[in-house]
């Protein structure tokens, strides 16, 4: 009996110490990690999408909502007006989640461009979504009032050869971003007007 209690006790104490110190570490390192991801993964992608914008897209971030529902929105200034907003989104790819940035042109009501940030797709097939800019370029100019789909599903996007699941995931993520955009549009317009002044 005594041995039993000792086993339970030792394991419990070890787990508590381990869990406690790890959550402390995570809490302290999270901001630095996010900064790194921002700088090395999202930053270049945002810059790529918002080419030619006259502001600094990576540094100018709007935060909408509060607490858990808070979302970050990047925006690009063209011809003196903040015209393009960039939303973050996620789709279910073949190998795991695909992180996607979706840029929406507010005046034209159309996609300004998309860019994959993080993914675990197969190299040469699904990874083309990130590595082949020509494929991503298909999304540019598509109206946001119509659902984005691959040609096989009746849409206008031709899927990557051998990677239909990835292509669908990117379309889904785009649609999700557009839906979020429509939801937060009033708030967004208000905030961006503040920026324009």
């Amino acid at each position: 009996m005594g041995e039993m209690i000792k086993m339970v006790l030792v394991l419990t104490v070890l787990s508590i110490i381990s869990g406690g110190s790890l959550s402390y570490l995570e809490k302290n390192l999270k901001p630095i990690q996010e900064k790194q991801i921002m700088q090395l993964v999202k930053g270049p992608a945002v810059r790529q999408i918002l080419q030619g914008a006259s502001n600094k897209p990576v540094d100018d971030v709007l935060t909408l909502g509060e607490g858990k529902n808070a979302s970050k929105v990047f925006y690009g200034v063209y011809e003196g007006k903040p015209k393009v907003v960039v939303m973050e989104s996620e789709g279910k790819g073949y190998g795991g989640p695909i992180g996607l940035l979706v840029a929406i042109d507010m005046e034209k009501q159309a996609l300004h461009g998309i860019g994959v940030t993080t993914h675990t797709e197969t190299g040469g097939l699904g990874a083309e979504a990130k590595d082949n800019p020509e494929w991503a370029a298909q999304f540019t100019g598509k109206s946001i009032n119509k659902k984005i789909q691959v040609t096989g599903d009746g849409g206008e996007i031709s899927a990557i050869g051998g990677a239909t699941i990835t292509s669908r995931a990117v379309c889904d993520a785009t649609n999700k971003a557009v839906a979020t955009y429509q939801e937060i549009k009033p708030q967004l317009t208000e905030k961006l007007q503040g920026v324009a002044k």
């Binding site: 394991l11 070890l14 787990s15 381990s18 110190s21 790890l22 570490l25 995570e26 390192l29 630095i32 990690q33 790194q36 991801i37 090395l40």
Partner: peptide, 19 residues
């Protein structure tokens, strides 16, 4: 438990400082 804790420490630190 002991090893896993230190591995996560390494992973988190590496993610923060050597991404």
């Amino acid at each position: 438990i002991i090893i896993a804790t230190f591995v996560i420490v390494v992973e988190q630190v590496m993610k923060a400082f050597a991404f």
